[in-house]
Design a protein around this nucleic acid. Structure first.
Length: 508
RNA sequence: GAAUCCUUAGCUCAGUUGGCAGAGCACAACACUUUUAAUGUUGGGGUCCUGGGUUCGAGCCCCAGAGGAUUCACCA
């Protein structure tokens, strides 16, 4: 299709303006550095009538968000780094000579909402009291060829014509961030949460590492992987579902504290708490156990919230969540007992299946004891855990990489952290007995043969590494996206990802 | 993967019983030198998600498909 015929009227008009700008000898996309020396935020927070003399020769750049032309003078709004500042543009000041085209043509006609411009001038306060940049020189820095949605807020704070369609917002996040600058706060908080976490670990002397994303065995978790192919080697590869087995190899290698913050990929359903690629933080510390890890997580999360928000209390939906430890610690079977009044800890697979039937909990034949217990927990307990809560001591069948409990038979030393009814972290006293580890993998294999597509694959090289002796250690995984959701009061994972996965658009 | 709902101008949305496609903002033209959802007057702008079907006639009814939202299932 000819691009000219496919343009909307408004797009065609903007391209005509572009041509006229060029004809007037103005470069709509200039190469030269623009000498910015101020920010809208600083101007608005620091300008005062007493220090007005200090606010001359100000040079700002940003996006033109509105134009209110009133004849020979105009007001406009510039958005710079997410902050709106008003501009005052006077014809005879930006065009002191005879030639008034800079105002009458360029500013009034050829500049559109969405254009990126540079302005030089001085700051003053208008008659109605608004801090405003009085423009003396105006430069087009980048022409915007598509109409920008215009979101307006009236005097009562009502938003008009909000750019609110979730599909458009997520597909065109760049537009979303321009016209809904308040969403920047969530992404800034995300960045700071990760940064605070990193500085907490670094201060302890633990090493940030990177491990393979392309793996020939997708170990370390129970999930369906994405499959890809390496051409030169002509071998199938998987995008990692976890990095646990590689981080443990580094413990074998003698690194005593290692962590990785990175993407995992799971070929499963998407909803408001699941994106096919998500960010996890996994950390392994030698010579520690899961009790130690619980205390570390409490300390770390309190540090993060204090650093980022200045408080350990955050709002989430209707709840006030407190990240100050210690968090409640409840063994898994106790938690189920407490919620249901039934103690399922002694039940075998058949009895568990019957119990599920009594409670109308769906089961399927390939589910083993571990999955049945997990199912019961998910139905009966998970949603009730609002404040940060550790659920501890899981049945061995669910957890092939954790060490057997030091004094509770049939259980492993594992905890999961739940907040707002969602799992946010998972940690073990890590299994480091290579013979036990091999047996656990073999039990997983048996589950896989029963039809459990998620059962964990056996990683021969990982077992070999463990036979070289892995130090006793505790490991932890945190779902960063979910943690960010909890800390920023977002109920959809799409709101904490710049570019959430979307289906390809039809016909494109 | 299943169910339900949604898709109309750049954006947000109306659209009656099936009878010429609508509004606000945005856009264009004119006026206006301290406005702020600027204002006033005038004007232009549509693949009604796509493809079939019913009908004299479909934005509307029927079938199929695409995308989105919600709930459920699986998972973190």
């Amino acid at each position: 299709m000819n691009i000219e015929t496919s343009l909307s009227e408004q797009e065609a008009i903007r391209r005509q303006s572009l041509d006229q700008i060029r004809s007037a000898g103005i470069d709509p996309y200039p190469a030269a550095l623009y000498p910015v020396n101020a920010s809208a935020k600083n101007i608005l927070s620091q300008f005062a009538d007493e220090n007005a003399a200090d606010w001359t020769e100000i040079c700002l750049a940003g996006r033109l968000m509105s134009k209110r032309i009133q004849g020979k003078a105009s007001f406009a709004v510039l958005m710079q780094d997410g902050v709106r500042i008003q501009l005052y543009v006077n014809r005879d000041e930006i065009c002191p000579g005879e030639d008034k085209d800079g105002y009458n043509q360029l500013f009034k006609k050829w500049l559109d909402i969405g254009d990126i411009i540079g302005v030089k001038g001085y700051v003053f306060r208008t008659m109605v009291g608004e801090i405003t940049l009085h423009v003396q020189e105006l430069t087009l820095l980048s022409k915007c060829l598509r109409p920008l949605p215009i979101v307006k807020t009236d005097a009562e704070g009502n938003v008009h014509d909000a750019f609110s369609d979730p599909e458009l917002r997520h597909r065109m996040r760049y537009v979303d961030l321009i016209v809904n600058p308040e969403i920047r706060a969530t992404f800034i908080a995300r960045s700071r949460i990760i940064s605070a976490m990193r500085s907490y670990f670094d201060a302890k002397g633990w090493l940030e590492v990177e491990t393979p994303i392309l793996q020939s065995v997708h170990g370390g978790a129970a999930a369906r992987p994405f499959k890809t192919h390496h051409q030169a080697l002509d071998v199938p590869l998987f995008l990692r579902i976890a990095n646990e087995l590689y981080l443990k190899r580094l413990l074998v290698a003698g690194l005593e504290g290692v962590y990785e913050i990175g993407k995992m990929f799971r070929n499963e359903g998407m909803d408001k708490t699941h994106n096919p690629e998500f960010t996890s933080m996994e950390i392994y510390v030698a010579y520690k156990d899961y009790e130690w890890m619980m205390a570390m997580v409490e300390d770390c999360l309190a540090f993060i919230t204090r650093t980022v928000f200045g408080t350990t209390e955050v709002n989430y939906a209707q709840h006030k969540i407190n990240f100050e430890g210690p968090f409640a610690r409840i063994p898994l079977f106790d938690a189920i007992h407490r919620q249901t009044g039934t103690d399922i800890s002694g039940m075998n697979e058949t009895e568990l299946r019957q119990q599920c039937a009594t409670w109308n909990i769906p089961t399927s034949p390939e589910m083993g004891k571990g999955k049945l217990i997990d199912q019961i927990f998910g139905e009966k307990v998970e949603k009730t855990l609002i404040q940060p809560t550790y659920i501890t001591d899981y049945p061995i069948e669910m957890t092939p990489l954790a060490k057997k409990h030091r004094n509770k038979d049939g259980l492993v030393e594992r905890f999961e952290l739940f907040i707002c009814g969602k799992e946010v972290a998972n940690a073990y006293t890590e299994l480091n007995d290579p013979i036990d580890q091999r047996q656990r993998f073999e039990e997983q294999l048996a589950l896989a043969n029963r039809g459990d597509a998620d059962a964990m694959a056996l990683d021969e090289d990982f077992l070999k590494s463990m036979e070289f002796a892995m130090p006793p250690a505790s490991g932890l995984g945190i779902g960063i996206d979910r943690l960010v959701m909890m800390m920023t009061n977002q109920t959809s994972i799409q709101e904490v990802l710049f570019f959430p996965q979307m289906r390809p658009e039809a016909g494109k």
